[in-house]
Design a protein around this nucleic acid. Sequence first.
DNA 1: TTTACTGGATTATGATATAACATTGATATA
DNA 2: TATATCAATGTTATATCATAATCCAGTAAA
Lengths: 148, 148
Amino acid sequence: MAHDNIDLSTLTRNELLVFEALKESDSPMKAYDVLDVLKSHGVRAPMTVYRALEGLEEKGIVHKLDALNAFVLCSHDRPHQVQSFLVCSECGMVQEISPELREAPQVEDKILGVVRATGFQMREARLEMKGICQKCTGKQSAHNTAAE
Amino acid sequence: MAHDNIDLSTLTRNELLVFEALKESDSPMKAYDVLDVLKSHGVRAPMTVYRALEGLEEKGIVHKLDALNAFVLCSHDRPHQVQSFLVCSECGMVQEISPELREAPQVEDKILGVVRATGFQMREARLEMKGICQKCTGKQSAHNTAAE
DNA sequence: TTTACTGGATTATGATATAACATTGATATA
DNA sequence: TATATCAATGTTATATCATAATCCAGTAAA
Ligand SMILES: [Zn+2]
Ligand SMILES: [Zn+2]
Ligand SMILES: [Zn+2]
Ligand SMILES: [Zn+2]
Protein backbone atom coordinates (compact mmCIF):
# COMPACT_ATOMS: atom_id res chain seq x y z
CA MET A 1 0.00 0.00 0.00
CA ALA A 2 1.18 3.41 -0.95
CA HIS A 3 0.22 4.88 2.40
CA ASP A 4 3.00 3.05 4.13
CA ASN A 5 5.45 5.28 2.31
CA ILE A 6 4.15 8.53 3.70
CA ASP A 7 6.22 10.39 6.24
CA LEU A 8 3.54 11.03 8.82
CA SER A 9 5.87 13.18 10.91
CA THR A 10 5.38 16.04 8.47
CA LEU A 11 1.66 16.13 9.17
CA THR A 12 0.01 18.40 11.67
CA ARG A 13 -2.28 16.90 14.25
CA ASN A 14 -5.42 17.69 12.29
CA GLU A 15 -3.94 16.51 9.04
CA LEU A 16 -3.13 13.23 10.72
CA LEU A 17 -6.67 12.89 12.00
CA VAL A 18 -8.09 13.50 8.55
CA PHE A 19 -5.57 11.12 7.02
CA GLU A 20 -6.65 8.37 9.41
CA ALA A 21 -10.30 9.00 8.68
CA LEU A 22 -9.73 8.71 4.94
CA LYS A 23 -7.64 5.62 5.42
CA GLU A 24 -10.44 3.91 7.30
CA SER A 25 -12.92 4.72 4.59
CA ASP A 26 -13.25 2.46 1.58
CA SER A 27 -14.66 5.26 -0.54
CA PRO A 28 -14.19 9.00 -1.02
CA MET A 29 -15.37 11.14 1.84
CA LYS A 30 -17.14 14.47 1.83
CA ALA A 31 -15.64 17.14 4.03
CA TYR A 32 -18.63 17.07 6.35
CA ASP A 33 -18.39 13.29 6.65
CA VAL A 34 -14.82 13.73 7.76
CA LEU A 35 -16.03 16.32 10.21
CA ASP A 36 -18.50 13.84 11.67
CA VAL A 37 -15.71 11.36 12.26
CA LEU A 38 -13.47 13.98 13.80
CA LYS A 39 -16.12 15.19 16.19
CA SER A 40 -15.17 12.36 18.50
CA HIS A 41 -11.71 13.94 18.61
CA GLY A 42 -13.03 17.33 19.58
CA VAL A 43 -13.10 18.91 16.13
CA ARG A 44 -16.15 21.11 15.80
CA ALA A 45 -15.84 23.34 12.76
CA PRO A 46 -15.73 22.74 9.00
CA MET A 47 -12.77 25.10 8.71
CA THR A 48 -10.61 22.68 10.63
CA VAL A 49 -11.35 19.91 8.19
CA TYR A 50 -10.97 22.06 5.09
CA ARG A 51 -7.63 23.38 6.32
CA ALA A 52 -6.32 19.90 6.96
CA LEU A 53 -7.55 18.67 3.61
CA GLU A 54 -5.83 21.58 1.90
CA GLY A 55 -2.57 20.75 3.63
CA LEU A 56 -2.84 17.11 2.65
CA GLU A 57 -3.57 18.06 -0.94
CA GLU A 58 -0.50 20.28 -1.07
CA LYS A 59 1.57 17.41 0.21
CA GLY A 60 0.18 15.18 -2.52
CA ILE A 61 -1.38 12.81 -0.04
CA VAL A 62 -4.99 13.58 -0.84
CA HIS A 63 -6.83 14.37 -4.05
CA LYS A 64 -10.12 16.14 -4.39
CA LEU A 65 -12.67 14.71 -6.78
CA ASP A 66 -14.27 17.89 -8.04
CA ALA A 67 -17.19 16.16 -9.67
CA LEU A 68 -18.17 14.64 -6.32
CA ASN A 69 -16.96 17.24 -3.85
CA ALA A 70 -15.15 14.41 -2.16
CA PHE A 71 -11.66 13.51 -1.07
CA VAL A 72 -9.52 10.38 -1.36
CA LEU A 73 -6.06 9.31 -0.37
CA CYS A 74 -3.64 9.17 -3.25
CA SER A 75 -2.79 5.60 -4.16
CA HIS A 76 0.58 6.41 -5.67
CA ASP A 77 4.01 6.27 -4.13
CA ARG A 78 4.94 9.84 -4.88
CA PRO A 79 3.30 13.12 -5.87
CA HIS A 80 2.30 13.32 -9.51
CA GLN A 81 0.98 15.97 -11.87
CA VAL A 82 -1.77 14.06 -13.60
CA GLN A 83 -4.41 12.39 -11.52
CA SER A 84 -6.86 10.02 -13.17
CA PHE A 85 -9.95 8.48 -11.68
CA LEU A 86 -12.62 6.03 -12.71
CA VAL A 87 -15.95 6.84 -11.12
CA CYS A 88 -18.83 4.39 -11.31
CA SER A 89 -22.21 6.08 -11.62
CA GLU A 90 -23.91 2.92 -10.46
CA CYS A 91 -22.18 1.96 -7.21
CA GLY A 92 -20.09 5.04 -6.47
CA MET A 93 -16.82 3.15 -6.73
CA VAL A 94 -13.82 5.39 -7.28
CA GLN A 95 -10.47 4.08 -8.41
CA GLU A 96 -7.37 6.14 -9.00
CA ILE A 97 -5.60 4.85 -12.08
CA SER A 98 -2.35 3.57 -10.73
CA PRO A 99 1.08 3.71 -12.29
CA GLU A 100 1.13 -0.07 -12.24
CA LEU A 101 -1.36 0.05 -15.07
CA ARG A 102 1.17 0.01 -17.87
CA GLU A 103 -0.66 2.39 -20.20
CA ALA A 104 -1.24 5.11 -17.63
CA PRO A 105 2.08 6.90 -18.14
CA GLN A 106 1.36 7.05 -21.85
CA VAL A 107 -1.79 9.00 -21.15
CA GLU A 108 0.15 11.35 -18.94
CA ASP A 109 2.81 11.77 -21.61
CA LYS A 110 0.24 12.47 -24.29
CA ILE A 111 -1.43 15.07 -22.14
CA LEU A 112 1.83 16.76 -21.29
CA GLY A 113 2.79 16.79 -24.96
CA VAL A 114 -0.41 18.39 -26.16
CA VAL A 115 -0.35 20.96 -23.44
CA ARG A 116 3.25 21.90 -24.06
CA ALA A 117 2.35 22.47 -27.69
CA THR A 118 -0.13 25.13 -26.65
CA GLY A 119 2.39 27.04 -24.55
CA PHE A 120 0.45 26.36 -21.39
CA GLN A 121 2.49 25.80 -18.22
CA MET A 122 0.61 22.95 -16.60
CA ARG A 123 0.90 22.55 -12.87
CA GLU A 124 -1.69 19.91 -12.22
CA ALA A 125 -4.35 18.01 -14.08
CA ARG A 126 -7.25 15.86 -13.07
CA LEU A 127 -9.05 13.42 -15.31
CA GLU A 128 -12.38 12.17 -14.01
CA MET A 129 -14.00 9.41 -16.03
CA LYS A 130 -17.61 8.54 -15.35
CA GLY A 131 -19.18 5.30 -16.40
CA ILE A 132 -20.04 1.83 -15.22
CA CYS A 133 -17.42 -0.28 -13.50
CA GLN A 134 -16.66 -3.86 -14.41
CA LYS A 135 -18.55 -5.23 -11.45
CA CYS A 136 -21.71 -3.28 -12.21
CA THR A 137 -21.47 -4.10 -15.90
CA GLY A 138 -21.54 -7.78 -15.00
CA LYS A 139 -24.65 -7.33 -12.89
CA GLN A 140 -26.43 -5.50 -15.68
CA SER A 141 -25.64 -8.07 -18.37
CA ALA A 142 -27.11 -10.73 -16.08
CA HIS A 143 -30.44 -8.95 -16.40
CA ASN A 144 -30.10 -8.14 -20.04
CA THR A 145 -28.10 -10.72 -21.93
CA ALA A 146 -28.59 -9.19 -25.35
CA ALA A 147 -25.97 -6.73 -26.50
CA GLU A 148 -26.88 -3.08 -26.12
CA MET B 1 -17.74 29.14 -34.61
CA ALA B 2 -19.15 25.87 -33.36
CA HIS B 3 -22.25 27.53 -32.03
CA ASP B 4 -23.55 28.21 -35.50
CA ASN B 5 -24.06 24.48 -35.92
CA ILE B 6 -26.44 24.08 -33.03
CA ASP B 7 -30.08 23.39 -33.75
CA LEU B 8 -31.63 25.97 -31.49
CA SER B 9 -35.13 24.72 -32.20
CA THR B 10 -34.58 21.79 -29.85
CA LEU B 11 -34.01 24.12 -26.91
CA THR B 12 -36.66 25.15 -24.45
CA ARG B 13 -37.18 28.82 -23.82
CA ASN B 14 -35.06 28.87 -20.69
CA GLU B 15 -32.35 26.79 -22.29
CA LEU B 16 -32.21 29.33 -25.07
CA LEU B 17 -31.93 32.19 -22.61
CA VAL B 18 -29.07 30.48 -20.79
CA PHE B 19 -27.40 29.65 -24.08
CA GLU B 20 -27.50 33.29 -25.11
CA ALA B 21 -26.11 34.41 -21.78
CA LEU B 22 -23.18 32.02 -22.05
CA LYS B 23 -22.60 33.05 -25.65
CA GLU B 24 -22.30 36.67 -24.63
CA SER B 25 -19.81 35.87 -21.92
CA ASP B 26 -16.15 35.58 -22.74
CA SER B 27 -15.48 33.36 -19.74
CA PRO B 28 -17.23 30.59 -17.82
CA MET B 29 -20.26 31.66 -15.85
CA LYS B 30 -21.46 30.59 -12.44
CA ALA B 31 -25.07 29.54 -12.21
CA TYR B 32 -25.91 32.57 -10.11
CA ASP B 33 -24.24 34.88 -12.62
CA VAL B 34 -26.47 33.41 -15.29
CA LEU B 35 -29.39 33.99 -12.98
CA ASP B 36 -28.46 37.66 -12.66
CA VAL B 37 -28.48 38.03 -16.43
CA LEU B 38 -31.78 36.22 -16.76
CA LYS B 39 -33.50 38.35 -14.14
CA SER B 40 -34.13 40.94 -16.81
CA HIS B 41 -36.12 38.23 -18.61
CA GLY B 42 -38.27 37.48 -15.60
CA VAL B 43 -36.34 34.50 -14.26
CA ARG B 44 -36.22 34.63 -10.47
CA ALA B 45 -35.12 31.29 -9.06
CA PRO B 46 -31.88 29.29 -9.18
CA MET B 47 -33.83 26.16 -10.05
CA THR B 48 -34.79 27.60 -13.39
CA VAL B 49 -31.16 28.16 -14.30
CA TYR B 50 -29.95 24.80 -13.04
CA ARG B 51 -32.66 22.99 -14.95
CA ALA B 52 -31.77 24.76 -18.15
CA LEU B 53 -28.07 24.11 -17.62
CA GLU B 54 -28.79 20.44 -17.07
CA GLY B 55 -30.73 20.28 -20.30
CA LEU B 56 -27.96 21.99 -22.21
CA GLU B 57 -25.40 19.62 -20.73
CA GLU B 58 -27.42 16.61 -21.80
CA LYS B 59 -27.58 18.01 -25.30
CA GLY B 60 -23.81 18.42 -25.30
CA ILE B 61 -24.04 22.17 -25.75
CA VAL B 62 -22.69 23.13 -22.35
CA HIS B 63 -19.96 21.67 -20.14
CA LYS B 64 -19.59 22.13 -16.45
CA LEU B 65 -16.15 22.87 -15.07
CA ASP B 66 -16.32 21.03 -11.79
CA ALA B 67 -13.23 22.63 -10.37
CA LEU B 68 -14.77 26.08 -10.79
CA ASN B 69 -18.49 25.38 -10.40
CA ALA B 70 -18.88 27.16 -13.68
CA PHE B 71 -20.35 26.52 -17.09
CA VAL B 72 -19.16 27.12 -20.65
CA LEU B 73 -20.47 26.53 -24.12
CA CYS B 74 -18.87 23.60 -25.87
CA SER B 75 -16.57 24.74 -28.62
CA HIS B 76 -16.84 21.56 -30.67
CA ASP B 77 -19.05 20.78 -33.61
CA ARG B 78 -20.65 17.73 -32.11
CA PRO B 79 -21.05 16.00 -28.75
CA HIS B 80 -17.94 14.21 -27.55
CA GLN B 81 -17.02 11.86 -24.73
CA VAL B 82 -13.79 13.42 -23.55
CA GLN B 83 -13.77 17.08 -22.63
CA SER B 84 -10.45 18.78 -21.99
CA PHE B 85 -9.86 22.23 -20.57
CA LEU B 86 -6.94 24.47 -19.84
CA VAL B 87 -7.58 26.67 -16.82
CA CYS B 88 -5.25 29.53 -15.98
CA SER B 89 -4.83 30.09 -12.26
CA GLU B 90 -3.58 33.59 -12.92
CA CYS B 91 -6.20 35.23 -15.13
CA GLY B 92 -9.03 32.70 -15.01
CA MET B 93 -8.87 32.00 -18.72
CA VAL B 94 -10.52 28.74 -19.72
CA GLN B 95 -10.00 27.10 -23.08
CA GLU B 96 -11.57 23.90 -24.25
CA ILE B 97 -9.03 21.91 -26.19
CA SER B 98 -10.44 21.82 -29.65
CA PRO B 99 -10.33 19.02 -32.17
CA GLU B 100 -8.41 21.36 -34.46
CA LEU B 101 -5.45 20.84 -32.17
CA ARG B 102 -4.00 17.90 -34.00
CA GLU B 103 -2.81 15.97 -30.94
CA ALA B 104 -6.08 16.15 -29.04
CA PRO B 105 -7.65 13.03 -30.57
CA GLN B 106 -4.56 11.09 -29.60
CA VAL B 107 -5.15 11.95 -25.97
CA GLU B 108 -8.73 10.85 -26.28
CA ASP B 109 -7.66 7.60 -27.94
CA LYS B 110 -5.10 6.87 -25.26
CA ILE B 111 -7.62 7.48 -22.54
CA LEU B 112 -10.20 5.26 -24.18
CA GLY B 113 -7.60 2.53 -24.64
CA VAL B 114 -6.49 2.53 -21.05
CA VAL B 115 -10.01 2.55 -19.77
CA ARG B 116 -11.10 -0.28 -22.02
CA ALA B 117 -8.23 -2.33 -20.67
CA THR B 118 -9.67 -2.03 -17.17
CA GLY B 119 -13.13 -3.24 -18.19
CA PHE B 120 -14.67 0.10 -17.33
CA GLN B 121 -17.54 1.30 -19.53
CA MET B 122 -16.76 4.97 -19.86
CA ARG B 123 -19.62 7.30 -20.64
CA GLU B 124 -17.97 10.66 -20.22
CA ALA B 125 -14.66 12.09 -19.09
CA ARG B 126 -13.45 15.51 -18.16
CA LEU B 127 -9.84 16.59 -18.02
CA GLU B 128 -9.17 19.86 -16.23
CA MET B 129 -5.63 21.14 -16.45
CA LYS B 130 -4.58 23.94 -14.15
CA GLY B 131 -1.56 26.10 -14.74
CA ILE B 132 -0.45 29.36 -16.25
CA CYS B 133 -1.53 30.31 -19.74
CA GLN B 134 0.83 31.53 -22.41
CA LYS B 135 -0.23 35.14 -21.99
CA CYS B 136 0.35 35.15 -18.24
CA THR B 137 3.65 33.31 -18.62
CA GLY B 138 4.82 36.11 -20.88
CA LYS B 139 3.91 38.74 -18.31
CA GLN B 140 5.77 36.90 -15.58
CA SER B 141 8.96 36.41 -17.57
CA ALA B 142 8.99 40.15 -18.26
CA HIS B 143 9.45 40.68 -14.51
CA ASN B 144 11.80 37.83 -14.02
CA THR B 145 13.93 37.14 -17.04
CA ALA B 146 15.99 34.41 -15.40
CA ALA B 147 14.72 30.87 -15.66
CA GLU B 148 12.56 29.59 -12.83
C1' DT C 1 -63.68 17.12 -21.70
C1' DT C 2 -60.55 14.24 -19.33
C1' DT C 3 -55.94 12.55 -19.11
C1' DA C 4 -51.18 12.67 -19.31
C1' DC C 5 -47.05 14.99 -20.04
C1' DT C 6 -43.55 18.61 -20.32
C1' DG C 7 -41.80 22.70 -18.93
C1' DG C 8 -41.91 26.26 -15.68
C1' DA C 9 -42.51 28.92 -11.06
C1' DT C 10 -42.17 29.17 -6.12
C1' DT C 11 -40.71 28.32 -1.61
C1' DA C 12 -37.92 26.47 1.37
C1' DT C 13 -33.94 24.14 2.67
C1' DG C 14 -29.73 21.50 2.31
C1' DA C 15 -24.83 21.06 1.23
C1' DT C 16 -20.43 22.97 0.41
C1' DA C 17 -16.91 26.36 1.41
C1' DT C 18 -14.58 30.56 3.13
C1' DA C 19 -13.75 35.17 5.62
C1' DA C 20 -12.22 37.21 9.56
C1' DC C 21 -10.54 37.29 13.83
C1' DA C 22 -9.05 35.25 18.45
C1' DT C 23 -6.22 31.92 20.95
C1' DT C 24 -2.62 28.74 21.91
C1' DG C 25 1.83 26.84 22.28
C1' DA C 26 6.34 26.27 20.71
C1' DT C 27 10.73 28.38 19.62
C1' DA C 28 13.94 31.98 19.20
C1' DT C 29 16.49 35.75 21.01
C1' DA C 30 17.29 39.95 23.53
C1' DT D 1 13.28 35.62 32.23
C1' DA D 2 10.59 38.37 29.29
C1' DT D 3 8.84 39.02 24.87
C1' DA D 4 8.58 38.68 20.00
C1' DT D 5 7.32 35.61 16.43
C1' DC D 6 5.11 32.14 13.88
C1' DA D 7 2.42 28.20 12.70
C1' DA D 8 -1.43 25.71 13.93
C1' DT D 9 -5.77 25.71 15.76
C1' DG D 10 -10.27 27.37 17.36
C1' DT D 11 -14.56 30.11 16.78
C1' DT D 12 -18.24 32.64 14.78
C1' DA D 13 -20.52 34.12 11.17
C1' DT D 14 -21.60 34.12 6.49
C1' DA D 15 -21.16 33.26 1.55
C1' DT D 16 -21.83 30.23 -2.21
C1' DC D 17 -23.69 26.39 -4.66
C1' DA D 18 -27.47 23.12 -5.46
C1' DT D 19 -31.81 20.47 -4.88
C1' DA D 20 -36.39 18.86 -2.83
C1' DA D 21 -41.04 19.32 -3.04
C1' DT D 22 -45.08 21.16 -4.66
C1' DC D 23 -48.03 23.57 -7.59
C1' DC D 24 -49.39 25.57 -12.05
C1' DA D 25 -49.94 26.35 -17.22
C1' DG D 26 -50.04 24.84 -21.83
C1' DT D 27 -50.78 21.27 -25.11
C1' DA D 28 -51.58 17.10 -27.35
C1' DA D 29 -53.75 12.70 -27.43
C1' DA D 30 -57.89 9.68 -26.10
ZN1 LIG E 1 -2.53 10.20 -6.72
ZN1 LIG F 1 -19.98 0.05 -10.04
ZN1 LIG G 1 -17.00 20.32 -25.80
ZN1 LIG H 1 -3.62 33.50 -17.77
